[in-house]
């Protein structure tokens, strides 16, 4: 395995709620997460809305200060960096955002948007226009459109511009925060293929945040499943998809539709009851226990550790078992 480029260790992020009245509350967005992204590989992070995925992503690129824990970029602590070292780190670590409609400044041309990273880092002083054209060409856009404004482009094209902007500084890791979920299905596959090509070409490490399980299976080397601020299961993509051990992962996977109608009808589904508990007041012990069909007393009293089940496949559950067993 290649060396880790982005190493997230025991990351915790809590937001104090400033209520007008009543007791002080804290949102437990991310509660002790370890993740590792390696060069040339994709780590898929799945979980439903509000489970803390985006907060984790923002901490990973130092847009948000975590409450505790560290993020290491190439072995150096990202949050201890200042000045020159931080600027250098910023070139290594880039992010692609979810919403293609706010990711580009509407008052700037595409060329201006792509020139900005070069200005910030003083790159390609003599040949910026040429480099911008190369970038546009690389992400599958017409290099002649550099003078156009974001509103003249479709969602998928804007997402490509956002990707080109991230690539402009030649990073080694990209944090992709649901880069496809705002796009039409027909456009998604194009961007997905582009992401794969770029990964191969530049040996990029991806932290791919998604809620589309098939996208993650298609692209990722490893997958981590997140529920209410914690990782519940993690491992090589095939091990997790074919032999899910956590009841939550099993429920998520059983919700993926099967293309074959006959198989689809026969398919057994695990339907979760109840809502996701409030992140201000997560359940004690295992956070999934309130919706879990296997929950027992120990689940309420003890937080399950993320233990290795077989090579690289870890699960945080007191009653791990595969569906067939």
């Amino acid at each position: 395995m290649t060396a880790p480029v982005l190493d997230i260790r025991d990351l915790v992020k809590e937001f104090p709620l400033r209520g007008k009245a009543g007791p002080k509350q804290t949102v437990h967005a991310v509660s002790g997460i370890d993740l590792t992204v390696r060069r040339g590989q994709t780590l898929g992070l799945v979980g439903e809305s509000g489970c803390g995925k985006s907060t984790l992503a923002r901490c990973a690129v130092r847009l948000t200060e975590p409450s505790s824990g560290t993020v290491e970029l190439g072995g150096a602590d990202l949050f201890a960096m200042k000045g020159r070292a931080l600027r250098a780190a910023r070139r290594q670590l880039q992010m692609v955002f979810q919403d293609p409609f706010t990711t580009l400044d509407p008052t700037m041309t595409i060329g201006g948007i792509l020139r900005e990273p070069l200005e910030i880092h003083g790159m390609h002083r003599r040949r910026r226009d040429e480099y911008v054209r190369e970038l546009l060409d690389r992400v599958g856009l017409d290099p002649g459109h550099a003078h156009r404004y974001p509103h003249e482009f479709s969602g998928g094209q804007r997402q490509r511009v956002g990707l080109a902007r991230a690539l402009a500084v030649e990073p080694s890791v990209l944090v992709l925060d649901e880069p496809l979920s705002a796009l039409d299905i027909s456009v998604q596959s194009g961007v997905l293929n582009l992401l794969e090509d770029l990964q191969e070409e530049f040996d990029l490490g991806y932290l791919l945040i998604a809620h589309d399980l098939s996208v993650v299976r298609h692209t990722s080397t490893e997958v981590a499943v997140m529920y209410l601020g914690r990782i519940v299961e993690r491992g090589p993509v095939d091990a997790v998809y074919d032999g899910a051990l956590h009841p939550y992962t099993q429920a998520l996977l059983s919700a993926v539709p099967v293309p074959d109608p006959r198989a689809e009808r026969r398919r057994e589904r695990i339907v979760l009851t109840g809502d996701v508990p409030q992140a201000t007041d997560p359940p004690s012990g295992c956070r999934f226990r309130t919706r879990c069909r296997l929950a027992t007393e120990i689940c309420a009293s003890t937080v399950p550790e993320l233990v290795e089940h077989d090579s690289g496949h870890r699960v945080a559950c007191h009653h791990p078992r595969t569906i067939s067993s």
């Binding site: 070139r91 880039q94 919403d99 990711t103 400044d105 008052t107 700037m108 900005e116 910030i120 902007r165």
Partner: peptide, 28 residues
């Protein structure tokens, strides 16, 4: 709160640059 401000921060833009390049033109 717009993503392009976050994108500029991730790229290492200074606050002065964000104000001059991204906020003021949008406030014009």
């Amino acid at each position: 709160e717009r993503a392009y401000v976050d994108a500029a921060l991730v790229l290492g833009a200074s606050h002065l640059r964000i104000v001059l390049r991204h906020l003021l033109p949008n406030l014009a």
